[in-house]
Design a protein around this nucleic acid. Structure first.
Length: 471
DNA sequence: TGAAATGTTGGGGCG
DNA sequence: ACGCCCCAACATTTC
């Protein structure tokens, strides 16, 4: 037996099905499956705490489907790969591409280093429907507005690659000399805060597929309307699976395409389009996580206020829908999209805190934290991004609650101290007559906070601040 | 993927 | 019968 040994380097593609790189590697020879925990190249966007918890379980699931042969490493990928190549006489190193600027820079260097060691390397598209460099306007510049990007740029180009199933036969090369165990990566913290996350998620490729099919069969039919109501099970909740590549966007795209065309289907596919658009922006504007895309926002009069920030982070703002969202995030590692917009608007506009604060907190708390989506979305809500929400669009958490959580089911789930409040005053308890509060067992300022800012005044203050950018 | 302010319309109460 | 006022309901404009 003298087969080629090929490394497939797992990164944000923790699956075996529909992996261009893994399939190609299997065709070429015996595959040495490698995962490298890279702590040093990501700068200030090293993987957040909630994501680490997810990664731990996702790696375990992947390792299981590889019969325990996943080779785990920690450190500088360039050095580790070169060492592996030399030690095992590896013919080629394959991987699916990532699009974070720091990863692009790193991978270019790794390619060169492998070349210098006479080892082939090949990268594939494993996580986007359309490559960012393929979608350009007629003048060869990147789109900055979503609708033409999606309709003209993406949909009128070629359709996404159709997914392939996992290789029927796979020969894995077992490497036992240098690898660590998954536990050695110490992704699970000592303090067991993650216990509250556990009941909400089933992690890994198999669970991702089950989630996808449950969504397509039961929930997609009411997506267009239902997705606005956080109490309903009408959104896919596929984002963390997609972020870690337990499932590919191609698998999702074609599963959604398999039902009859409808508005619901179209709206869901469009959300995949927004994900693509975020990657497109990050690729073409690599400073997206840091710099305002609209530079006039550089002189925005942001406020520094740790009390505000802390109240927001812990869900103690006194605005029930905002607090419900922030506590959902803390307890489950996730937040419904409608509520993400409400809490984002509140942080940036009503509290006037820099969107970086929100971006950082979400980065650490979300199991689906994704550099492209997170940065693009915070810029969107702050109004400084491409095709952003107009600055004057300020969400009113009371109105949003009454509209999208009319029975208070979602809000009461995460803010149980208000569970006896009648709907009429659930979203504005400060307006409730004394008897109503008493009846509900709520003493404002004691059982539940008084509003930390006045919604009307803070809105006007925000409009004034944004106005100041005009001159 | 807003909200508030302002404008318009039309029905009903009432003198 | 008619004009007037009130105000909800809806539409438009503005931030």
């Amino acid at each position: 037996m003298n087969r080629n040994i090929v490394i497939h380097w797992f990164r944000q593609d923790l699956r075996l099905a529909d992996s261009s790189s893994f399939s190609a590697a299997i065709r070429l020879g015996a595959v040495l499956p490698v995962y490298i925990y890279d702590e040093h190249n990501a700068g200030d966007h090293h993987i957040g705490a909630a994501s680490r918890w997810w990664l731990h379980h996702s790696l375990n699931a992947l390792n299981k489907s590889l019969n325990g042969k996943l080779s785990i490493h920690k450190g500088d990928p360039k050095k580790i790969l070169i060492d592996l190549v030399q030690e095992h006489n590896v013919k080629a190193v394959y991987w699916n591409r990532c699009y974070e600027p720091w990863r692009i820079t790193r991978d270019v260097k790794i390619k060169k280093a492998l070349e210098a060691h006479n080892t082939e390397s090949h990268s594939f598209n494993g996580s986007l429907l359309w490559e960012p460099w393929e979608i350009l306007k007629k003048d060869n510049t990147p789109y900055k507005v979503f609708t033409p990007y999606y309709k003209k740029g993406c949909l009128e180009l070629n359709p996404p690659r159709e997914p392939v199933s996992k290789p029927l036969k796979m020969e894995l090369y077992n490497e036992s000399t240098t690898k660590l165990s998954i536990n050695d990566l110490r992704l699970i913290p000592k303090i067991k805060w993650y216990k509250t996350l556990e009941p909400h998620w089933n992690i890994g490729e198999i669970s991702a597929k089950e989630r996808l099919y449950a969504f397509i069969e039961d929930e997609l039919v009411n997506y267009k309307q239902g997705r606005d109501f956080p109490a309903l099970k009408s959104v896919s909740r596929l984002s963390p699976h997609l972020h870690f590549g337990e499932i590919s966007p191609n698998q999702i795209w074609y599963a959604a395409k398999s039902i009859e065309d409808s508005d619901d289907q179209e709206h869901f596919l469009r959300e995949l389009g927004w994900r693509e658009f975020s990657y497109h922006l990050l690729y073409h504007f690599p400073s997206l996580p840091r710099d305002n895309l609209q530079t006039k926002f550089d002189k925005f009069p942001w406020v520094e206020n740790d009390v505000y920030l802390h109240s927001w982070q812990r869900g103690q703002t006194g605005y029930p829908l905002v607090d419900a969202g922030m506590r959902e995030l803390w307890q489950t590692g996730y937040m419904h999209n409608r509520v993400r917009m409400v809490v984002g608007s509140f942080l940036v506009k009503n509290l006037l805190l820099h969107w970086h604060h929100g971006e950082k907190w979400f980065w650490d708390c979300l199991v689906d934290a994704d550099l492209a989506s997170n940065s693009a979305s915070w810029q969107w809500i702050a109004g400084c991004g491409a095709d952003a929400a107009p600055y004057f669009r300020v969400f009113n958490p009371t109105t949003q609650g009454q509209k999208f959580d009319p029975n208070g089911e979602y809000t009461k789930r995460f803010v149980p101290e208000l569970s006896a409040m009648p709907n009429k005053y659930l979203f504005n308890p400060w307006d409730a007559p004394r008897e109503v509060l008493q009846e509900a067992g709520v003493k404002l300022g004691k059982d539940y906070p008084k509003p930390i800012v006045d919604i009307k005044l803070s809105r006007l203050r925000a409009l004034e601040a944004y106005q100041s950018l005009k001159q």
